[in-house]
Amino acid sequence: MVLDPFTLLVITAAMAAASALYLAAEWGIVRERSLLLWSAGFALVTVGSSLALLRSSGYMLFGIWFPNGLLIVAHWLFLAGVAGFTRVRLPHAWWLLAVVWLAMLLLPDGPWWSKAMMCVQSLLIALIAVRAGLLLRPQDGALSVGAAQLRFVLLAHGLFYLAKAVSTMAPDAIVNLASFRGAVIQISLVEGVMAIMLLAMSMTGTERHRREERIAQIAARDPLTALDNRRALYLRAPQLLEQASPASPGALLLIDIDHFKQVNDLHGHDAGDRLLLALSDLIRAALPQGALAARLGGDEFVILLRNVSGAAAQALGQGLREAFAQQARAMFATPEPVSLSIGATLFDQPDMELSHWLKRADEALYASKRKGRDRMELVPVANGRAD
């Protein structure tokens, strides 16, 4: 097959249509707005490439300039999709790009007009593509493979159009828009086919990585309180435990709701869920920077604090206990007061596992229960032994 401009346009339209349909199908599954914007962009490329087939018959408006406008809009949709993916709000000034292109259409025709129009169009696409690539900045030192590929393709695509803008304004440039002759046009079509293929693959990979991250986050969260679950606690705790030392100990607080069953029996399980949510909100509000909180199951919660004294851990626990008791009284009436029992331990040995400190805090929790509930028992440690 000879890759003449006509054939390249047919291939471009077919690939863009396939990309649009595939991204639309992905959007139908995950309902991610970026996928819909990218799909719409490829759909416009499909329409524009199909209309561009008319240019060989001399239809300047519908064969050249209208498809060029659709190409600019398609790239703007790619930019909007990247902005949505990166949670960045685009300034309204980006709408001025359409004004610039429309202003060029209103200028009087002349021997220079086709070159100037192609230069402006190329500059607009270059600006949009480069901006979209720059939005995909590495966060926390790394990008996902799909996002890194998308960033590279967008930047390379933008730089190509920048070079195209420069080349079209050269005195000896070969640009014949009414026919399919011209090296600039043919090179641009080849680059367009490659860009469509790479963009579609990178966009899909980028969104799939985001989806996998979201699934991992859901798997690590307690579905009711949105705190970490037991699995996430065991995965994240070792990093915090490793920071402990005799000079900078940490603390583990094991929390249990007293008389929680009465709330469920008297007011229903929905009331129990509301009480658990209230406690999780209090825990989240009291949590200092760098600490961990998780729901172990039922009405049992755990807090891990780093670089904290026994007095500071005691103050946090007591403040949490008092705030919860007050809120529980306001929410539900029960024969026995609904309160918190807290067992806590300091830890200063980075080589000890989480289960060791949980066991020690559990012993302190049962001591709190035995002494009448609604209290906090703290076990300090020195040289690995309880004081």
Rank of each mutant, 00 (worst) to 15 (best):
V2S: 14
P5E: 02
A14C: 15
A18K: 07
S19Y: 01
S19K: 01
L21I: 13
Y22W: 14
L23N: 03
R33M: 02
S34V: 02
S34H: 09
L35C: 04
L36C: 08
W38M: 02
G41Y: 02
L44N: 04
L53A: 05
R55E: 05
R55W: 00
R55F: 00
S56F: 12
G58M: 06
M60S: 13
L61S: 09
G63M: 05
N68K: 04
L70F: 02
L70T: 00
I72Q: 02
A74D: 04
W76N: 01
A80S: 12
G81A: 06
A83W: 01
T86D: 00
L90N: 02
A93P: 00
A93I: 02
W101F: 10
A103Q: 02
L105H: 11
L106G: 10
D109M: 11
S114F: 10
V120P: 03
Q121R: 11
I125C: 11
L127V: 15
I128K: 01
I128P: 04
R131K: 15
G133I: 03
L134V: 11
Q139W: 12
Q139P: 08
V145S: 13
Q149D: 15
R151D: 11
M169F: 09
A170I: 07
V175N: 06
V175G: 02
L177A: 03
F180T: 08
R181S: 12
V184S: 07
Q186D: 13
G192V: 01
V193W: 01
M194C: 11
M197F: 15
M197D: 10
L198N: 08
L198V: 01
A200S: 15
S202N: 09
M203L: 12
M203I: 10
T204L: 10
H209Y: 12
E213T: 13
E213N: 13
E213C: 12
Q217D: 14
I218A: 15
A226K: 15
A226I: 03
A232T: 07
Y234C: 08
R236W: 01
P238D: 05
L241C: 06
A244W: 00
A244P: 04
A251H: 08
Q262K: 01
L266Q: 12
L266K: 09
L266G: 10
H269S: 07
D270E: 09
D270Y: 01
G272H: 05
A278G: 07
L282T: 00
A285K: 12
P288K: 00
L292G: 07
A294L: 04
L296Y: 14
E300Y: 06
L304W: 04
S309A: 09
G310C: 09
A311E: 15
A311V: 13
G319A: 06
E322K: 10
F324T: 03
Q326P: 04
Q327N: 09
A328L: 07
M331E: 13
S341H: 03
G343K: 03
A344Q: 03
A344C: 10
D348H: 15
D348A: 15
P350I: 09
P350C: 08
M352C: 13
K359F: 08
E363K: 07
A364I: 08
Y366K: 05
R370C: 08
V381G: 10
A382S: 14
A382K: 12
R385A: 15
A386R: 14
A386P: 05
D387M: 14
